[in-house]
Amino acid sequence: LVAMFGSAFGFAVLALTIGVVRFWRGVSPAAGADAATRAAIAAARVPAAAEAAIDVATLRHLGGGHGEGCNEADDRFTLARRRFHHLTAYGFLLCFASTVVATFMHYLLGLDAPYGWASPPVILGTLGGIGLTIGPTGLLWLNLRRDPAQGDPDQRPMDRGFVALLLAVALTGLLLLGLRETRAMPFWLAVHLGTVIALFVTLPYGKFAHAAYRAAALLKHAVEKRLPRRFDLGSD
């Protein structure tokens, strides 16, 4: 089981990494740059990486550039999309952390599941599951209410499918936690594991991929704005 899920997750990470590396090679500020620009890029890497990391962690650009948020059903600004994205992203990370901690406890410490309610895997998984339930539910609600002019209609099935899959992972995980001492546990375990592996194998090809590419784009922007500006105005 570990080998199967590890292989699926490893494939997703590898596919995303290859895609982002190819993207970076195509847009990197260092591509075709002279020696002086390359030196400036090298000096800018650390502060640019720190800025990009903060932008990713805070989802600053979902503030609409003015801190008031995005448009949804009408022209009013709202921070709802940013908040639901935060719940989704950090809920996912907490669930992932729960899995990592549980794996460590099982294989390195010899502690077999199920774990107590106050154990790190259960606390992390419960908090993550709650975030991963509220966040995608809110994003799906916003997507259904959004003005058609605010997005590409052809992208909606992908958006909604990904959000629904995240929601399925969260809900089946919470159900499994609540029913783990009942006869229904084997059924919900199979359902939950099915949703998880479906999420893993589709990660590089669905909406999730935008997180990796967006992070690379933010890093590019953070590097470029630290480079000296040269204006070639010509002889006139």
Rank of each mutant, 00 (worst) to 15 (best):
V163Y: 15
A217E: 11
L175W: 05
G26T: 03
P120M: 06
P114S: 08
A48M: 08
R156A: 13
A215V: 00
T133I: 00
G194D: 00
A118P: 11
V191C: 02
A222Q: 06
L79S: 09
P148G: 05
I123E: 07
A198G: 05
F200M: 09
A222R: 02
A35D: 11
W188H: 01
G131P: 07
R22P: 00
S98E: 03
R230Q: 12
I41C: 08
P148Y: 02
A39P: 01
G234R: 02
A12C: 04
A198E: 07
F96P: 00
A43M: 09
A33Y: 07
A53T: 14
T126M: 10
R146H: 09
R160Y: 12
I134W: 00
M185R: 14
L79E: 07
P186F: 03
V56R: 07
A216F: 01
V163C: 14
L127S: 04
L142R: 03
P29M: 05
A113R: 10
A149S: 09
G64E: 06
M185V: 02
G129S: 01
P121N: 04
L1V: 13
V223H: 04
T103F: 08
T202Q: 05
P148D: 03
T182Y: 04
V201H: 02
R145L: 11
V163E: 12
A53C: 12
A212H: 09
G10N: 07
A164R: 12
H85P: 13
F77E: 14
A216Y: 01
S7R: 12
H192E: 01
F92C: 11
I41K: 09
A73Q: 13
H106F: 14
E51D: 15
R25P: 08
A8G: 03
A190P: 00
L167P: 06
G194W: 00
R38C: 12
G178Q: 01
P120T: 04
I54F: 15
P29E: 08
G10V: 05
G151S: 12
L189H: 14
G10H: 09
R156D: 10
K220D: 10
L132W: 01
G131W: 12
H86A: 15
G161L: 05
T133C: 03
A33K: 10
A35M: 10
F162T: 08
V201P: 02
P114W: 08
R38A: 11
